[in-house]
Design a protein around this nucleic acid. Structure first.
Length: 271
DNA sequence: AGCGGAACCTGTCGGC
DNA sequence: TGCCGACAGGTTCCGC
């Protein structure tokens, strides 16, 4: 599910619903995810109030009025579901939060690639989890970033997916960004012109901002915290469009594997 | 050092 | 209808 626009949408949705709320009961139903959910969170956050919710890369951070911060990563299929009455527990519901006034939140994750954890303050947001810059600020580090790409013999697709380069880009948006910037996903960093790399940095923000505006992309199971869908999947230019005609030149969109993951592109538009 | 590939886990879809 | 393999928004680890 979740790349930067989806996590951003989730964090905004959470802010709207649970900011200022106090946790009455926190219960870990199943702690065995890819990274084990510490059952200590049940005690650590009991009776604590939610002060701030932030996103950094594809991570979410929930700050409380105590010395600990809840961090989460949605992996592939993680989601939060908020409701105004006590929810029925389903398969793959792993944590339940109960707030005051009959407000509930479930953490559900089918494939269990996500995690929930807590960290002691203070948190270094800049160097958080070795993440690279947030897309929002890359224009201030243009020279540095372009120099780094120019030195890399990796393909530009792999560079975009490297979270220590720029944080938050995943497999869908990597394809969409490269189409927008008219760069072939197979090109290595060294080979791409400065002009194209400048375009690339612009495309990163163009695509991600548009996706955030649409509430992210709902392909199979991503939903917002209130159950609504995102709509950016309707704006995909290449992702999932193998065999369909390119919106720009009418050539057929191609699909290939790069580092084990699907890349979609137009051979004619992306050179 | 850096790369590709496998592993983690469950569900779904397409082919035979 | 049923079985089997491939594939899915991500990260991490292992071996070359």
């Amino acid at each position: 599910m979740p790349e930067l626009p989806e996590v951003e949408t989730v964090c905004k949705g959470l802010s709207k619903k649970i900011l200022g709320k106090k946790i009455k009961i926190l219960k870990v139903l199943n702690s065995k995810l890819r990274k084990i959910i510490p059952t200590e969170i049940e005690k650590v956050f009991k009776e604590k109030m939610i002060k701030t919710i932030l996103r950094r890369g594809k991570y979410g951070l929930i700050f409380f009025n105590c010395d600990y911060t809840l961090q989460f990563h949605l992996g592939m299929t993680g989601k939060f579901i908020i409701s105004n009455r006590k929810p029925l527990i389903n398969k793959h519901d792993h944590v339940i939060f109960e707030f005051e006034n009959n407000l509930f939140m479930l953490y559900n994750d089918v494939r269990k690639f996500g995690f929930i954890d807590f960290i002691k303050k203070p948190i270094d947001l800049i160097n958080f989890n070795q993440l690279g810059h947030e897309p929002k600020v890359i224009r201030f580090y243009k020279k540095k970033i372009i120099k780094k790409i120019k030195k890399s013999s990796k393909t530009i697709k792999d560079i975009l997916l490297d979270q220590s380069f720029v944080s938050g880009i995943g497999n869908i948006y990597a394809s969409e960004i490269l189409f927008n910037a008219r760069i072939n996903p197979k090109s290595t960093g060294i080979k791409i012109s400065i002009i194209k790399l400048n375009n690339l940095l612009k495309s990163i923000n163009l695509i991600l901002d548009k996706a955030i505006e649409k509430g992210g992309s709902s392909i199979s199971d991503y939903k917002k915290v209130d159950g609504d869908l995102g709509y950016f999947q309707n704006n995909f230019r290449v992702y999932g469009r193998k065999g369909l005609s390119c919106f720009k030149c009418k050539n057929l969109i191609l699909q290939m594997k790069q580092s084990g993951r699907s890349t979609f592109y137009c051979k004619n538009c992306q050179k």
